[in-house]
């Protein structure tokens, strides 16, 4: 079992294709405090490259990525 990360906000982005997951997460991250974590669930396979690219550019951090079947879950810490 991997360690549990406590998320301050959970976003269900399942079924949404590009560009909506990144657009919604970039909005959602502004609703939490710096240092807090968002748990974003997506079924967009492109998110595996897109989320890290978005995080690097926007100055936030992906703490953990989980994959369970088609669902990819990112834990993103707000740094910026």
């Amino acid at each position: 079992m991997s360690e549990k990360i406590k998320a301050d906000k959970v976003m269900d982005l399942k079924g949404l294709p590009c560009p909506m997951p990144v657009v919604k997460v970039s909005k959602g991250i502004k609703e939490i405090e710096v240092g807090q974590v968002i748990e974003a669930q997506t079924t967009d396979p492109g998110a595996l490259t897109d989320f890290p690219a978005w995080a690097r550019t926007s100055g936030n951090e992906i703490v953990k990525t989980d994959q369970d079947g088609k669902v990819i879950t990112f834990f993103i810490k707000r740094n910026a």
């Binding site: 590009c18 560009p19 990144v22 657009v23 970039s26 550019t57 926007s58």
Partner: peptide, 11 residues
Amino acid sequence: LIIASGAVAMG
């Protein structure tokens, strides 16, 4: 439009 909205997401 997809590039435009993505770019806003990228700050």
